[in-house]
Lab assay of single mutants.
Amino acid sequence: MKTQEELTEIVRDHFSDMGEIATLYVQVYESSLESLVGGVIFEDGRHYTFVYENEDLVYE
């Protein structure tokens, strides 16, 4: 089982391919040991929310 830090790094690596990240945040109250819920804001102003669970990243 991966730690929350490892899950965060996986998500950061994925989004870094889309541009320069200004902020990546995790909603700790919605996340667990198996899933990571949060959002990412890019330097150009784009903002996505995401759920990473079971090695699957869903964002909008």
Rank of each mutant, 00 (worst) to 15 (best):
E20K: 15
Y52E: 00
R46F: 03
M1T: 12
S35N: 07
S32F: 09
G45E: 04
S16N: 10
Q27H: 14
G39W: 15
E20N: 14
V51Y: 10
T23I: 11
L36R: 01
S32P: 07
L24T: 03
Q4F: 10
V26H: 03
E53A: 15
Y59I: 09
G19A: 04
T8E: 14
A22M: 10
F42S: 00
R46K: 06
S35F: 12
E55V: 06
H47P: 00
V28L: 12
D44P: 01
L24I: 11
T8Y: 11
G19T: 02
S31I: 08
Y29A: 06
S31N: 09
R12M: 09
F50S: 00
S32D: 11
N54M: 10
H47S: 06
K2Y: 06
Q27T: 12
H47Q: 07
I10G: 04
G45P: 01
Y25Q: 04
V51R: 15
L36C: 04
V11C: 04
S35D: 03
I21H: 02
Y29D: 05
E30P: 05
L7I: 12
D17R: 15
S31H: 12
Y29C: 07
S35C: 09
Y48P: 00
L36Y: 04
Y59K: 05
V37E: 08
I21L: 06
D13C: 12
V28T: 15
L24Y: 04
S35G: 06
G45S: 04
Y48A: 02
L36N: 00
I41A: 04
M1R: 09
I41F: 08
F50I: 01
S31P: 12
E60L: 11
V51L: 09
V58N: 09
Y29I: 06
D13P: 04
L36Q: 01
E9V: 09
H14P: 01
M1Y: 14
I21Y: 02
E9I: 11
E5A: 14
Y48H: 02
R12C: 06
E6M: 10
E43R: 15
G38F: 03
E6Y: 08
I21D: 01
F15W: 03
T23V: 13
D17Y: 15
V11I: 09
E43V: 14
L33K: 15
E55T: 10
V51P: 00
V37D: 03
S16E: 08
R12Y: 10
F42L: 07
I21T: 02
Y52N: 01
I41H: 06
D56Y: 15
Y52Q: 02
T23Q: 10
F50Q: 00
E55I: 05
R46W: 04
T8F: 10
G45L: 04
D13M: 14
E5D: 10
E30Y: 07
Y52K: 02
E9Y: 09
Y59H: 08
V11Y: 01
S35E: 06
Y29M: 06
